[in-house]
């Protein structure tokens, strides 16, 4: 594979953006230089298992990559590992492995693209938006709450992204009420465009259907429970759309993914 590193990376910033959601900035020059949007890293979150820390590393997609040797992770606290991460003070080092997996392929994104994110699925989509440069695109973001809308706006405004923003929230405050796939369906009808998406499984399944109906391709970033992150343990299986006759066939989210073409996946 080449260009994969395990490095002790200094935490430069670790800030709570809203209840349970954090942004961590780390110094990781080798990883930042090698990484592409949609790839991920495995973070060793804490102490030895017998001291109460978790055993396995935790996977996070790269939220931002920058040319000055920094990476950012946008994460939600959901268990012991992320709770420990939330408490890490700047100046401390975390052992990080990456970049890993297959990222987004936006080399063909010439005409128009739609970036679609739901909830914490925003994490890799900001890196992609940033890398799209002046390519024509619209960014669809589905939030649960108005607070999440604020967080999104603050994050996207830190990037040079200039595309149109389409926002929805479940509470209907500060954004159109509903699911992000609603306005996406309308947009696809008006102007079909290739899709890049990350978010809850149900949202991605809907994106896959919309892409098929509109006759466009969709690249979706998946998540899974993972142990090694290198393709050895076969834990992070996702069922492929092929292989119906001979029984199920699985791909590894960490290795063949985390970004898949929507038609590759059995939803």
């Amino acid at each position: 594979m080449g260009d994969v590193f395990i490095k002790n990376c200094q935490v430069l910033e670790n800030r709570q953006l809203m209840e349970g959601t954090y942004l961590m900035r780390l110094r990781a020059p080798e990883i930042a230089a090698a990484a592409k949007p949609g790839q991920f890293v495995m973070v060793r979150t804490g102490s030895e298992p017998l001291e109460g820390g978790p055993l396995l590393r935790r996977p996070f997609s790269l939220h931002r990559l920058n040319s000055s040797g920094e990476i950012s992770l946008l994460y939600r606290v959901i268990g012991v590992g992320t709770r420990i991460m939330g408490g890490v003070e700047p100046g401390r080092e975390l052992e990080i492995m990456g970049p890993l997996g297959r990222g987004f392929d936006f080399s063909e994104a010439k005409e128009q693209s739609y970036l679609v994110a739901g909830g914490i699925g925003l994490a890799p989509m900001i890196a992609l938006a940033e890398a799209m440069g002046d390519r024509k695109s619209k960014f669809f973001y589905g939030a649960r709450t108005s607070k999440e809308v604020d967080v999104f706006l603050a994050l996207i405004r830190q990037t040079p992204y200039e595309g149109e923003l389409v926002l929805t929230s479940e509470d209907g405050l500060k954004a159109a009420k509903g699911m992000v796939t609603g306005p996406l369906a309308v947009a696809l009808e008006e102007e079909p465009a290739q899709l890049f998406a990350c978010g809850p499984r149900l949202m991605l399944a809907r994106v896959a259907v919309l892409a098929r109906e509109a006759g466009v391709r969709a690249q979706v970033s998946l998540e899974a429970n993972m142990a090694c992150g290198l393709g050895a343990c076969l834990s992070c299986a996702v069922e492929r759309a092929s292989g119906e006759e001979s029984g199920p066939v699985y791909s590894r989210v960490c290795f063949e993914g985390p970004v898949f073409f929507a038609e590759e996946v059995r939803w």
């Binding site: 298992p49 017998l50 055993l55 429970n225 142990a227 992070c236 069922e239 699985y250």
Partner: peptide, 16 residues
Amino acid sequence: WPGNPPPRIVETSAGM
């Protein structure tokens, strides 16, 4: 062999 449907792993106390 295709293997089992996911989720295939879960972390537990000092193990998986």
